[in-house]
Design a protein around this nucleic acid. Structure first.
Length: 185
DNA sequence: ATCCCAATAT
DNA sequence: AATATTGGGA
């Protein structure tokens, strides 16, 4: 029986759970999430192919240096410790792109990003994250793109001057440095 | 109910 | 190692 990895995870109430748990499964075709004005993450469950399909490979999201750069800029704009997945997605301008990370993709990546910052914080940096965009510039596909990214323009031409939603509510828009750093006393 | 984070699994 | 998935909290 196929199960549909929909995404209602936990629906209120948390009383008593069967003692049986510890099952992991993976299987997804579409992305998750799709709502909220302008959401495009469609959840088109294709139904489990009964048979005949030669086990399609699931495509994992590949974070390209460029996507990574957009991600980084968005995160830094909001402040590393305060960057939230949905805000990041908006600031990235990935909407409308053919290759757009889903909120969950961003979430996962954001975690990794914070982790790399946390465990190195300010000292040495790993070759992967530290030099991710260096490869972009060296690749040659950056040159002009890098310049565009400086101003943050969408390759589609639909560049709107990033309008930050509303962060005014919080008085802590302050950010730009790694939070949680208290060693020097 | 929705969103996000951290842990965990693959 | 990088990404996805899951569990739990706000």
């Amino acid at each position: 029986m196929a199960m549909r990895p929909r995404r209602p995870r936990k629906v209120a109430d948390g009383s008593g759970e069967p003692a049986a748990r510890g099952k992991q499964q993976h299987s997804r075709s579409g992305a998750g999430e799709s709502r909220g004005g302008g959401g495009e993450e469609s959840d088109g469950e294709g139904g489990a192919p009964e048979a005949g399909e030669p086990a399609e490979k699931k495509a994992r999201f590949v974070w390209t240096p460029e996507m990574h750069l957009r991600f980084e800029r968005a995160v830094h704009k909001l402040g590393v410790p305060h960057a939230k997945p949905q805000a990041i997605r908006q600031l990235m301008g990935c909407e409308g792109e053919e290759y757009a990370p889903t909120r969950q993709n961003i979430k996962s990546h954001l975690q990794k990003y914070r982790q790399s910052r946390q465990n190195s914080s300010h000292a040495a940096d790993g070759p992967t994250w530290g030099g991710a965009f260096l490869g972009l510039a060296a690749s040659g596909l950056g040159a002009s793109q890098a310049g565009a990214l400086q101003g943050l323009a969408s390759p589609l031409g639909q560049s709107q001057p990033i309008d930050v939603p509303e962060v005014s509510s919080q008085l802590e828009v302050f950010g730009g440095f790694d939070g949680m750093d208290s060693s020097v006393g």
